[in-house]
Design a protein around this nucleic acid. Structure first.
Lengths: 244, 244
DNA sequence: CATGCCTATTTCCTATAGGATCTTCAATAT
DNA sequence: ATATTGAAGATCCTATAGGAAATAGGCATG
């Protein structure tokens, strides 16, 4: 994500290091988002405006604006005159709705990217290689019994990157935006499930099937492969959710 | 402690119906939204924070929060240190993307509401009656050559209400939210096309076909009818857009 | 002992003020 | 005549202060 900024720094020799014209509001937004996605704050916790402002050494106004932005993503809830709270975890029915929406988005994106252009297949294959290598590391760590937080986070990031390749190439800003909107909810789900990742082998196999479907020149194959993958993730996740 | 509050609400019935505690921010949001949807402000106009604040006799802070909220809907654009502007009109490719996304949402919603429960069909039929009556008034006004702004606004509202019935009954908050997000963009499109409404007869016929499809007990019929409708709206709108 | 009421503190919400930045417009040099 | 430069005005952005509401705790009462 920082690669473009790093490239500029290489060319310009780090001249305009602090020339970002992004306003203080966006930095505050990133900080709070990172705090929420890290999972350090349990759901239902109060997010005091000026407490956050003091910890970031800014005034409450930009914090308030970042909160409005976060409210629309669904990560925080707001009650008038009572402040903001971390959104409660998703229940089973909300989880089902989330997967239904994701199934719609991913299958549509797969259909819109068929037939696939060569650069997309290259990117997809590279993303899957990354996903597979990290996934095998996760499997190795599972054998030793240690649940590495950073490793699972990297795994989820690689998985998300794989799917993002498809959305990026479907050339539809609205669908892409909807997908990113669901991304935050997905992260919220993973926190609530919390038992780590248990379906690495299945995910790798299904991703490989998706890549193969794009290469097969069959017009209906990518959408079908993507549907199988999302439905597989859904059934596996709902099983885990039912156990708890 | 929570049970007592619920009991009190039951006992008191609908006594405190209009005591919404909605903060000043939401009122400002509604005001600016109405201003934008009215079409009085041309695209690209600057939306000065404190000018709006003075006209609404509030402080700039709630206006700023409402702007953040509007920015995420795509109705206004923000440039750091340069302020907010009314979003520019949609070009042809954006229009195509918008209809592609809408096609995905509406067909999915139609599929999720099949088979239809009786109350939904009743609501749908009532919404279509409303749409038809207003549509016939629009046709009559077109014959006399007068383009009534309020009448066309009512027509678009009736059309949106018809589609909203389906989304409300598909029981998926995420899809419903996405649909409402596209609603603002749709309104923006209608302003840019601006030539009034020219496909009233086609829209009424296609809506009737949708209702008939729900009544037919054919599991695939509603989605197909909805697809035909959206594709019809798309081709008619893109034709108009190409002419201009 | 349980319940309702009252007060104090914390927090949110709005308003106002000052510093930094962009835009506009006029003047000047080429 | 055109492009550049400079300053004035307006606007945005951030910080601080005060009023209003909610929460927590203590106290009186049935």
């Amino acid at each position: 994500m920082l690669s473009s900024a790093a490239d500029e720094a290489d060319v310009l020799g780090g001249l305009n290091a602090t020339f970002e014209r992004r306003g203080l509001r966006d930095h505050v937004y990133d900080s709070i988002l990172q705090l929420l996605l890290s999972g350090e704050v349990p759901p239902g916790s109060r997010l005091s405006i000026d407490t956050i402002a003091r910890r970031l050494t800014v005034s409450p106004t930009p914090v308030r604006e970042a909160m409005v932005q976060l409210e629309r993503t669904g990560l925080v809830t707001r009650e008038a005159l009572k402040g903001y709270r971390v959104a409660p975890p998703l229940n089973t029915s909300q989880l089902a709705e989330l997967f239904e929406a994701r199934l719609m988005l991913e299958t549509t994106a797969a259909r819109l990217t068929t037939p696939a252009r060569p650069p997309m297949i290259d990117e997809l294959r590279a993303a899957e290689d990354q996903h597979r290598s990290i996934g095998e590391a996760v499997i190795g760590a599972m054998g030793s019994g240690s649940a590495d937080v950073a490793l699972t986070a990297a795994y989820f990031a690689a998985d998300a990157a794989f799917h993002r390749v498809v959305f990026r190439h479907c050339r539809n800003h609205y669908i892409q935006e909807m997908s990113e909107g669901l991304g935050a909810q997905l992260h919220r789900m993973r926190q609530s499930v919390q038992h780590g990742v248990t379906d690495v082998r299945e995910a790798i196999a299904e991703h490989d099937a998706i890549v193969a479907a794009y290469e097969s020149q069959d017009a209906a194959a990518p959408e079908a492969a993507m549907r199988l993958h999302i439905e597989g993730v859904r059934s596996r996740s709902l099983d885990i959710a039912d156990q708890s």
